[in-house]
Design a protein around this nucleic acid. Structure first.
Lengths: 349, 349
DNA sequence: TTGAAAGCGCTAACAC
DNA sequence: GTGTTAGCGCTTTCAA
């Protein structure tokens, strides 16, 4: 293994000079810099991560905590993870992948061991157990043992109480409102919402409830009747859900879907029943762009900006680590793209 | 920050004793052990990862390199990643997430810096650029600069030349054979294969080509006529592909699909054309279990054992790191589950 | 069964 | 613009 000392010797300079060439923290003469860089290349030197972390108290690693379950938004998760990894690298950080499995312990472990300099949490619940560990130093009375004052973190998602936290998310409230408004403007009076699996609501994931809020208040304002039904993914579950909906509200002409794995089943079922999209019924989806354009009917949809969220999260975290940035809640504005699945409500029979 | 020295002082023992309590590398009296453990708990001590890595030359981190592109198998990737993370934790390792973006440089960087003790590579191409860096110490003439003799690694996927490498994968050749044989036994004589996107073949990803091999040799043996068409995901692409297939081989009654995002479109299109599944045509898929059971017709399929591959990869890697295991190629036997999408070929008109 | 002490490879004062 | 040096917190001989 090549060490910094060996590089220094090879280049005929001191160890610190090599270190400073690498970090750029002090000015180096043209000549010296070149000799050092040449030696580095020639010897194939790579700074030792452990030694660096020990000496500098910075690991240059960001931890990303992803949900263990895969009952929702798998492609979104993946896209976020990739965006996080890519953006992190661009800022000189590597990414440590944690699953939700360990829960709050993972936060303690990673923060306590200095494994990562900061963390990004996905799938945040409204009252998330991990949050107390992350909130800025305001410990009520004295330090809690084993809990560092303040672990720099960014949440992707919005908990109930955001004080002392930095969060990034799509504005799901506005998203919900936008969806009903679109349908209302087209003359739809009865709208059904096909939501995530019941489990998603039960664990009080913020985004699902906030979308519902937005849908409801939007419906109130535009005089639309709303019916909300959670739905497991897949064809069979969707068939049952749809039957129930049409049973309770036969006049339903608008659908808002927030469940990727219900999209295609819904379209297939509507086709089977002879309900044309968008002539008889309109469908608006909240889903990744790719799902919307690959569906059997190109879907009017609000895209989930996965990449953007991942990028934002990293950039805010890096800013925080550099002391350039404080707590902040960023809600990305939803954008509704009209495609082939929504149109004017049919005139009543 | 709590250090080992502080714990030692608190417990009234030496630093090395605390270290040995933690590592279990030498026997400690009941009494001492308990005092130390008590101090650790009381002070909320977490060993510093950097210091540990520096002193022991082991980071206890496994690097996982995932593909950057998301043109295929997203849920599979995700499932593997989660399985890797979970299994790694169970063995005391954390997981560093690398994207394919950096290519071979990532291997050099991670290996050279001692950031990770070993790596797991996904999406391996037949002639992968990263492989020369991983192959066991057999450098032809002298060491190559910057390349450690042997970076412990496990591939998920199979390159053309597996010498000096450890690999885990589904036996895609057998998978292909199994699929045609199933259809052949049911009396199908014309089978069409709907494959991955052309890009997947162009970059010579092993699994796609090996599946095709298996399909072809299976077809030869059972006297089945085979037509293979790559296909981008989505409804429109599938429509075109299907039209071409039925144009060239109107008697096609069997389909093998190896492209998740073509499955549902195919089923919808067949329905639209009045071809009943499985009465008129049979469909066999190579896809994750979840996709098969959630489809609009429950699919006869060969499952992609994502979890199992992830787990295997970690366990082999850990064994290697402990010097318990050498190079090895493990091919998991495919299992075909018969569901509702395949049945006897219709008698010829 | 335990302690003392020498590093691991690097960073960042401090000195010139 | 460059060199010297004292740690960073842990592991692991060596010695008792």
């Amino acid at each position: 293994m090549v060490t910094l000392a060996e590089v220094a010797q090879h280049a005929g300079v001191s160890a610190s000079t090599v270190s400073y060439v690498l970090s750029g923290k002090r000015s180096i003469s043209m000549n010296t810099r070149q000799r050092v860089e040449e030696s580095i290349r020639e010897l194939g030197y790579h700074p030792n991560a452990g030694a660096r972390a020990l000496a500098s108290s910075r690991s240059n690693i960001i931890a990303l905590m992803i949900p263990l379950r895969t009952d929702m938004y798998v492609p979104v998760m993946m896209e976020i993870a990739i965006a996080v990894a890519t953006t992190a690298r661009a800022h000189g950080y590597d990414v440590l992948l944690l699953t939700g499995e360990e829960g709050p312990d993972a936060v303690r472990r990673v923060a306590g061991s200095g494994l990562a300099d900061g963390m990004i949490l996905m799938d945040v619940e409204l009252e998330d157990e991990r949050l107390p560990l992350l909130r800025g130093g305001a410990a009520p009375d004295g330090a809690r043992p084993g809990v560092p004052a303040d672990q720099p973190a960014v949440l992707i998602g919005l908990p109930a109480d955001t004080s002392g936290l930095t969060c990034v998310d799509l504005d799901f409230r506005a998203t919900g409102a936008l969806c009903v408004e679109h349908l209302a403007k087209l003359g739809h009076r009865d709208v059904a919402v096909i939501g995530e699996a019941p489990a998603v609501y039960e664990r009080h994931t913020g985004f699902a409830e906030r979308t519902l809020d937005g849908l409801r208040s939007g419906a109130r304002e535009s005089g639309v009747r709303l019916l909300h039904r959670p739905c497991e993914g897949g064809y069979d579950a969707m068939a049952l859900t749809l039957a129930r909906i049409l049973d309770e509200r036969p006049d339903t002409t608008g659908f808002v879907v927030q469940n990727e794995s219900a999209v295609e089943p819904l379209l297939a079922l509507l086709r089977q029943q002879g309900r044309a999209v968008p002539e008889d019924v309109s469908v608006v989806a909240v889903c990744p762009e790719q799902v919307a354009v690959q569906a059997s009917v190109r879907l009017t949809s609000v895209a989930i900006p996965a990449q953007e969220m991942g990028r934002y999260a990293v950039e805010h975290l890096v800013a925080k680590l550099d002391g350039r940035d404080g707590d902040e809640v960023v809600l990305l504005a939803p954008e509704l793209t009209v495609r082939a699945s929504s149109g004017p409500a049919p005139s009543r029979a």
